[in-house]
Design a protein around this nucleic acid. Structure first.
Lengths: 228, 228
DNA sequence: ACAGAAGGTGAATGCTGATTCATGTTTCAC
DNA sequence: GTGAAACATGAATCAGCATTCACCTTCTGT
C-alpha cells in the first residue's frame, strides 16, 4: 500500500533498462517542471527531453501529478539528508547553523528548480507541500530543542525558532542564490551575525555607552560599504 | 503608457457601473486565483462568481494574465501601505518590528490567498513576483538602516536583515496563520524574543554561570509547555 | 426623447495537451 | 534458443478552456 504498489499496471521498473528510463524521465521532469511550472510543463516535453516516447511516461507514473509529487518528496529527502551530512560531527551549535545554511545554499544552487517545484506543490498537491516543510521543521526543531537543553542556545520556543530560521534561509537563498549570485560568504556571515545576536543593541557598559555606540557604528558601516 | 492606457479597446471603466463591475471581477479573481491557482482558475468561474457574463471580463482586462498581475501588484501595495500605517508614530524600533509582524499576520489572515497568489506569480509573470518582494525589501531595508544609524538597532547589513526578517514573517505566517491558527500572541512574542536577542546564550556572569543557566532552562521550559 | 457611447451577453471557435491503446521491440529465466 | 514478461512507441482521442464576436441593454448629455 505504501510506495509503488505494482497492483494496477506496472509502475516500478523491474529490469535495469527500466530503472534507467524511469530515472531519465524523473530528471527531465525535474528540469521541465522547474522551468515551466506544473501546468506549463507538458508530458511531451518531458519525454522529448528524456529521450523517451510519449507513452513511456505512463509506464512509470500513473499520471502527471504522481511524478510531480515524487519529485517534491525526493527533493525534500535529498535536502534533509544533505543537511544532516553537512552538519554531523560539528559540536558547536552555532557552527551547525552556519554549516547548515551554507549547505542549503549549495543545494539550492545545484537544484535551481527547488524553489519553483516546492512552491508549485502547494497547488498540485497540498499534502506534499506540507510534508516537505513539516519534515524539515520537525528535524530542525528537535535539533534546536536539544541544543537549548544543553545550554548551547538561548531557550526559545523551538518550533518558532525553526520556522524563523527556515524562513531566513529560504529568503536569503531566493535573493542571493537565485536572483543574483553575490558573495555568498558575506551573506552567510551577515545572516550568522543576525541570528546569533539579534537586532537589539547589546547593553553597553554604562559609563562608556555613548562613545562605544558611536565607534561601533562607524567601523561597521565602513566595512559594510565594501560590499554591494 | 503606464497603467491603463485605453488606447486599444476600453479597459479603464468610465462610469460608476463600470467601476463596480471591474472591482467585482477583481475580487472574484482574487478568490478564484487563490483557490485554484492561475492555470486552474477559469475565466468562466471568475465571471460566474462576479455575476458577470464571460465576455465582460475582456471589457476590463486584455487577458487572464493581466488581471493576475494587477492582483499581485495590488496586494503588494495594499500590504505595504497597511504595514506603513500600522507602524507610523511608533518610536521604539523593536516595537515597530512587533507591530509590523502583527500587521502582516492580520493582513495574511484577511487575505488568505496572498501567499498562493504571490507564489504563483513566479510562473505567471516573474517581474511581478520580483517587484512584490523587492519593493517590500527596499522599504524595509531603508527603515532598518535608519534605525541602525540612529543606534536603535545593532549594525548589520540592512538588506540581509530585511530579507531575513521577511523570511521569518513569511514562514511564521504560513505556519501559524494559514496552516493552523494558534495563539498568535505567543508566536509574535516568540518571534520577537528570537529576533531581538538571537540564538546565542548571553555571556553570563562568570561566577554563577552554571547555576543561572540551569535555572533559566527549567523556568522557560516549563512555561513553554503551557503552549502546544 | 434620442443618439451614441459604455457596458453586458454567451454561443461559437480553436487550440492545447493529458491520457489511451494497439502494436512493435527487448530482455531474461529456463 | 525461446516464449512470456517488460518496455517502447506515437497516432488518435477527448475534454477543457481562453479568447472573439455579433448583437443587445443601459446610461448620459443635450
Amino acid at each position: 500500500m505504501n510506495q509503488h504498489s505494482p497492483s494496477v499496471g506496472r509502475l516500478a521498473p523491474v529490469t535495469a533498462r527500466g530503472q534507467r528510463s524511469r530515472l531519465r524521465l524523473l530528471r527531465a521532469a525535474e528540469y521541465v517542471f522547474g522551468q515551466k511550472g506544473f501546468e506549463g510543463a507538458s508530458i511531451a516535453e518531458i519525454c522529448r527531453r528524456a529521450g523517451s516516447a510519449l507513452g513511456s511516461f505512463y509506464t512509470y507514473f500513473p499520471d502527471k501529478k504522481a511524478a510531480y509529487v515524487e519529485l517534491v518528496d525526493s527533493l525534500g529527502s535529498r535536502l534533509r539528508s544533505e543537511l544532516a551530512t553537512a552538519v554531523e560531527g560539528i559540536d558547536d551549535r552555532l557552527d551547525v547553523e552556519r554549516a547548515g545554511l551554507r549547505a542549503f545554499f549549495d543545494f539550492a544552487a545545484r537544484h535551481r528548480q527547488l524553489y519553483r517545484i516546492v512552491r508549485q506543490a502547494e497547488f498540485v498537491d497540498p499534502p506534499a507541500f506540507h510534508r516537505y516543510y513539516r519534515k524539515l521543521a520537525a528535524a530542525y526543531s528537535t535539533g534546536l530543542a536539544k541544543a537549548m537543553d544543553e545550554g548551547e542556545l538561548r531557550v526559545l520556543d523551538p518550533e518558532i525558532a525553526a520556522y524563523s530560521l527556515m524562513g531566513m534561509a529560504d529568503f536569503l537563498g531566493m535573493r542571493w542564490v537565485l536572483w543574483e549570485t553575490g558573495d555568498l560568504d558575506h551573506v552567510v556571515d551577515g545572516a550568522m551575525d543576525f541570528l546569533t545576536g539579534g537586532l537589539s543593541v547589546p547593553p553597553a557598559k554604562p559609563k562608556l555607552a555613548t562613545a562605544a555606540k558611536r565607534t561601533t557604528k562607524r567601523i561597521t558601516k565602513a566595512s559594510l560599504h565594501a560590499h554591494r
